[in-house]
Design a protein around this nucleic acid. Structure first.
Lengths: 221, 221
DNA sequence: CAGCATCCGCTTTGATACTG
DNA sequence: CAGTATCAAAGCGGATGCTG
């Protein structure tokens, strides 16, 4: 259990929202949680890669604060590999609905990608978890691979929901290659496949795979 | 349409969460939204009162940023009263689920009240909206008044849900007087009425009124 | 190289005082 | 009442240096 002495700035309000923001309201904090949520246990360097723009000392600070708050736990890895791992505690995982709601609210802000906006493929895991579900849980599971520059992301069906992981699926049922906007548009059904192809998206596989996970009509929370 | 030129600091990440935080991630911003959500349209001074600890210039800054982002609209009131009103736009109201999830996550952080924690009665509207619902929408509506120091808060049943407003209910079906912790404990059913009374809570009215809105077994989002 | 710590210039925040 | 103005302190971003 590492210690943290830094200044614990608080709003000093007896209100659940204010107390939550005391813990996760600082700059970068929720983005650190995003990384751990989307990628699972991470090394320091993985986190840095997923958080382009963060200063190294800030990342260290945030990790310590989160550890102190019981949101993150650090695990100095076993002897073979000499590298530590950061992971969300169960308390930290409970932030998932918060990130989902914020992500949902922020969706409309993603119009055209600014020239200097950074991007990492695994960030697609957020809209995937948010919008997709497996509509045919009784059929054999499927995997969809997304490629848009750096390391691919895999979406897998699991008991009616979907999971995501970085990496590649040797025999994916579908592979989408293209810009983030096109990929998300197609996955969520906002852009139909033919139009997306005309706009430059590459789709390999049975379109039925896509329909299996796309949102239908009204989607619940 | 007021202008805003301040520095638009951005994470520069093509991710819905990061874009949301570009808009509402600054210090105090979500608390300003809380005030407008719980109290409805507010004058500058009301906001200040509901945000103990904020610096006046910061409040002005935040309001301008939020206005610029389309979350808040300012309405220079009609001639009679020379005071402006701030209100959430519909885009701003869509932040409600975000505040609810953050509030839900922050709930466990509200143990004993720190000596210098500020409190405003209308903040009880957050747990009320979060945990309570009307389980008997067919029966005539009821009102519950909460008193804990400053101006009371009224909880009213409405079509299966509850609404809250500052003020007092002339003929409330129930009146709770006591500390915030006791009141929330009783409303959510975590503390039973007898125990709360022993701890200092005053309850006036039919206990059935309470049961009508208290959470039952598993509550949905 | 992974995992920090330190230093420095800039920006944001906080506290208070002041004004129409 | 509804803000501006001012200024000190804290936080942040970027660069660089240290240590195993």
């Amino acid at each position: 259990m590492a210690w943290y002495d830094g200044p614990m700035r608080s709003y000093g309000q007896y209100c659940a929202l204010a107390k939550a923001l005391d813990v996760v309201g600082d700059r970068w904090t929720l983005l650190v949680v995003r990384e751990l949520l989307l990628r699972g246990p991470c090394r320091y360097t993985d986190l840095r890669h997923g958080l382009p723009g963060i200063a190294t000392n800030l990342l260290v600070d945030r990790l310590r604060q989160l550890e102190h708050a019981g949101v993150v736990s650090r695990e100095d890895a076993p002897p073979p590999v000499a590298t530590g791992l950061f992971r969300l505690t169960s308390r930290g995982e409970q932030l998932e609905p918060v990130l989902h709601q914020l992500g949902r609210w922020g969706g409309p802000l993603l119009r055209e990608r600014a020239r200097d906006d950074a991007f990492r493929t695994h960030w697609l895991g957020l809209p995937a978890r948010l919008h997709l579900k497996d509509h045919a849980p009784d059929r054999p599971p499927v995997a969809i691979e997304l490629r848009t520059g750096d390391e691919p992301l895999v979406i897998e069906t699991l008991e009616g929901t979907v999971r995501t992981r970085s990496g590649s699926a040797p025999n994916a049922d579908a592979v989408l290659t293209g810009t983030p906007r096109l990929i998300v548009g197609v996955l969520t059904g906002k852009i139909d496949l033919a139009a997306a192809r005309k706009a430059g998206l590459k789709y390999k596989g049975d379109p039925e795979t896509l329909r299996r996970v796309q949102p239908r009509a009204v989607t619940r929370a």
